[in-house]
């Protein structure tokens, strides 16, 4: 887990920046005003999560983290689709 070199520091700083962006997006989740605004914000947070996990994989030299990023990306997509389907036909998720 050691962090060495300029590149790794830059990658970690970028990851922290993306998490800061996610903190800003929480404002949109709280403020709304519609359900879809919140889903858009959570979708953006999920894609930020994928980027953060990929950056951490490179910075900490743990390529296994990319698998987590892949799983997160797929399930984030699933979540967005499920919620948008749910808001149209209530209860029609499964």
């Amino acid at each position: 887990m050691a962090v060495s070199g300029v590149v790794d520091t830059v990658l970690l700083a970028a990851a922290s920046a993306f998490v800061l962006f996610a903190i800003v997006l929480v404002y949109r989740i709280v403020a709304g005003p519609t359900m879809q605004d919140r889903v858009i914000a959570v979708n953006a947070i999920g894609t930020n999560a994928v980027v953060v996990l990929a950056l951490l994989a490179a910075a900490l030299d743990q390529p296994g983290f990319l698998d987590i990023a892949l799983v997160y990306g797929m399930l984030n997509f699933l979540m967005s689709i499920a919620i948008s389907k749910f808001t149209v036909e209530r209860g029609g998720v499964i």
């Binding site: 894609t47 994928v50 390529p63 990319l66 984030n76 967005s80 919620i83 948008s84």
Partner: peptide
């Protein structure tokens, strides 16, 4: 092999991110 995974990740998000936005706005 991790580069292949990264490229796969990028291609996947390149397809799904606009698709999800489209699905959400269509629901709206």
């Amino acid at each position: 092999v991790s580069v292949a995974k990264t490229v796969l990740l990028g291609a996947f998000l390149f397809v799904t991110n606009p698709t999800a936005a489209h699905a959400i706005t269509r629901a709206a």
